[in-house]
Amino acid sequence: MHDELLTNPRADRVRAVRSLTGRAVRRRAGTFLVEGPQAVREAVAPGGPRVHDLYLTPEAADRYPEIVAAARSRGVPVRPGSPDVLDAMSPDAQGLVAVVDQVHADLGDVLTSRPRLVAVLAHVRDPGNAGTVLRAADAAGAGAVVLTASSVDVHNPKAVRSTAGSLFHLPVVTGHELPEVVVALRAAGLQVLAADGGGVHDLDDLLDVAGAAPPGVPDLAVPTAWVFGNEAWGLRDEDLALVDAAVRVPLRGRAESLNLATAAAVCLYASGRAQR
């Protein structure tokens, strides 16, 4: 281990780590918290973001020696702390917390790589939903995720936990307004589709004609950006006016609707399948 065991839950260092749960503090510091073994493992992996410190209980060090080894191989200070200290830093630590530089990607740089699948979150306010969509985008093979300026901070602790480490797997762009994003996506050769319960096009019908869609019908086999709206009210009329087409996910049973993250996963996987 790097230091002597931290045992005082009220120490300045402990309070400084805990303060990163606040957005204003994260913005000033340019860092954020990564909690739990899965997310910390991805953060300290080779090629990951800069990690300032890794805090963990002796029990966690024994249980996850590969995380300790990966951190040390990158020169990350490994600081042991008592369970009380880790709980004070984060009640969701599961014995491990890392302080990591914030991850920001440039929209232009991302689109220069010509991604074939992009997820755009417009006005998404729930951190759990945002993180889960990012995880689904990663799993479906998306090349990037964009969160508009009005969406939740992707470095919110709940959002980070919900990504289960996927935050470190693909570029995440933040801070742009939706009209600017749509223009950039089209210029990069992507069609822009909105997931909307009132959409003219049925997702299953689009899958049936993928690769051979008739004129006026979106082709899921071509490079596509999906726009997902707010959890409560979806996409505004002015947002829908920006996209090439609105697509609804068919509801076969009696459910009134799908939640945001589930609908996003269905749409992203549909595109991923069509593009294979």
Rank of each mutant, 00 (worst) to 15 (best):
V118H: 02
A130C: 08
P49H: 06
H176P: 02
A137E: 00
V181T: 08
R125L: 08
A43C: 05
V103R: 15
L117E: 12
T163D: 04
G141P: 02
S82R: 13
A88F: 02
L86W: 01
L56W: 07
A93I: 01
P58I: 09
D53A: 15
P115G: 14
R72C: 04
D84L: 04
L147K: 07
T57Q: 01
P77K: 15
A61R: 09
S73I: 12
T132Q: 09
V99L: 10
V152W: 07
V99N: 03
V85I: 04
R63W: 08
V124L: 05
A71S: 03
A60M: 02
L96V: 15
P77T: 15
L96Q: 13
A105D: 10
V103P: 11
G48H: 00
E42Y: 13
D87Q: 11
E66L: 14
G81V: 01
T163G: 12
P65F: 02
E177L: 06
A137M: 01
A159D: 08
V44E: 02
L86I: 01
D87I: 07
D153A: 10
V183M: 08
V124A: 06
R135P: 02
H169R: 14
T112D: 13
Q102G: 11
G95D: 03
V51E: 07
L134E: 12
T112C: 11
M89A: 04
V181P: 03
A159K: 10
T148H: 06
V172S: 05
L56S: 09
H169D: 14
V118G: 02
A140C: 04
H104L: 12
R161C: 13
G48V: 01
S73N: 14
D101F: 05
M89P: 04
M89K: 11
P171R: 10
V146K: 00
D62Y: 06
A137Y: 00
G47H: 10
Y64W: 15
R125C: 13
F168A: 10
R74P: 01
D92H: 15
R63S: 14
D138A: 07
L56E: 10
V120Q: 01
V181L: 04
D53M: 14
P46C: 02
A140R: 08
E177P: 00
G75W: 06
H155G: 06
A142T: 02
L107N: 02
G95R: 04
E42C: 13
A70T: 00
A71E: 01
G75Y: 11
S73F: 12
P65R: 05
A43R: 03
R135M: 08
G141T: 11
R63K: 15
S151Y: 03
R63L: 14
A142N: 06
T174M: 07
P80K: 11
H155F: 12
Q102E: 07
A144K: 03
L170I: 11
N129H: 05
Y64E: 10
P83N: 07
R63F: 07
G128Q: 08
G131S: 11
Q94G: 12
D87A: 15
A130H: 13
A139K: 09
Y55D: 03
T57H: 00
V160Y: 11
V172C: 08
L167S: 10
V152T: 14
A105K: 13
L56P: 03
P77I: 10
G128M: 08
Q94A: 15
V173S: 05
G131D: 13
G128T: 08
G81P: 01
V182A: 14
G131I: 04
A130T: 06
A43I: 00
